[in-house]
Write a protein that binds this DNA or RNA. Structure first.
Length: 275
DNA sequence: AACAGGCTCAACCGCCTGTAC
DNA sequence: AGTACAGGCGGTTGAGCCTGT
């Protein structure tokens, strides 16, 4: 069919948004609401592509966006959700109040992949990396260190330096347009892994993250049974109870184990993640 | 102080899905 | 059924910042 660009790009601004543009967009949406992104820039007096406006609003300007570092709870939750869903950032973001898919995607790519590798886990499959693979990585590390020796190696036990992660966005998705058709190639098989302390842990991807290297032990007594769409809106900043994930995961495992599980059941389970 | 390389993350790009006609 | 459009998604990029030399 040949898809036309979302809008004419002639004469449009690109790159970082100015305070004035932010203000124009925010004011317009406060008055007229979201939607009609294509026509919004013109009406709001912005020389921006509609897509760009939508992205800026969703990822930065929305009032319900949670700003601040990803907490250990969220960190752990992201890993678990990724093990379940793969690179379905919008789904994962939907379970993290105040966070956006873009933020989670960035956090995953910059922090969590390294973290999992350092734990001997393949961040893509969540399976344990083979020893040879790990050794190969160590070799590479060492050789790069030889090229560029660092005079002050950090002691192993020293906790990771806390970096200020100054974020942005969240999308609390509307629930009407769920689809399982994308990226369904994620490998669900279980595996073994090794914790930071070197202990081999169960044939269960879930258990891989029961303890992580920051010593975060999941699970508390908060009894948030199930978080639904409205919960997401009103619980901004409250970490989801681990019980919820445990339930979801158990439910999913049961579906997988069922001999005649069909797509309808899996779809309904996935849909439940959004509800 | 100056430079180089690595890291972070906001923003863009291209593709897909859903819907209206 | 076919086409066009809007909205949404995940992957990628690159400017600016940070850190080490």
């Amino acid at each position: 069919m040949g898809r036309a660009p979302c809008c004419s790009k002639v004469g449009l601004h690109r790159g970082p948004w100015t305070a004035r543009e932010d203000s124009l967009l925010t004011n317009y949406i406060q008055v007229h609401g979201e939607g009609n992104w294509r026509s919004l820039p013109k009406k709001a007096g912005l020389l921006r592509c509609g897509k760009s406006c939508r992205l800026r609003w969703m990822n930065y300007l929305r009032p319900d966006i949670k700003r601040g570092n990803i907490t250990p709870d969220e960190d752990d939750l992201i890993v678990k959700m990724h093990a379940l869903l793969g690179n379905r950032w919008s789904l994962i973001a939907g379970r993290l109040p105040g966070r956006t898919d873009n933020e989670i995607k960035n956090y995953w790519n910059t922090h969590l992949t390294k973290k999992l590798r350092s734990l001997g886990t393949d961040p893509t499959t969540h399976k344990k990396l083979s020893d040879s693979h790990v050794q190969e990585q160590k070799k590479r590390k060492n050789s790069s260190k030889k090229k560029k020796p660092k005079p002050k190696p950090k002691p192993e036990a020293e906790p990771e330096k806390l970096k200020v992660h100054n974020p942005k966005p969240i999308r609390i998705k509307s629930l009407g347009s769920f689809s399982m058709s994308r990226n369904t190639s994620f490998d669900w098989t279980t595996t073994t892994t090794t914790t930071a302390s070197g202990t081999e842990v169960a044939d269960d991807p879930w258990s891989n993250f029961r303890y992580n290297e920051v010593g975060f032990l999941i699970g508390d007594d908060q009894d948030h049974d199930m978080i639904n769409g409205s919960d997401l809106e009103c619980h901004s900043g409250v970490p989801m109870s681990d019980h919820t994930l445990e339930k979801l995961y158990e439910e999913y495992l049961q579906l997988l184990k069922a001999e005649d599980h069909d797509h309808v059941e899996l779809d309904s389970f996935a849909e439940s993640l959004l509800i």
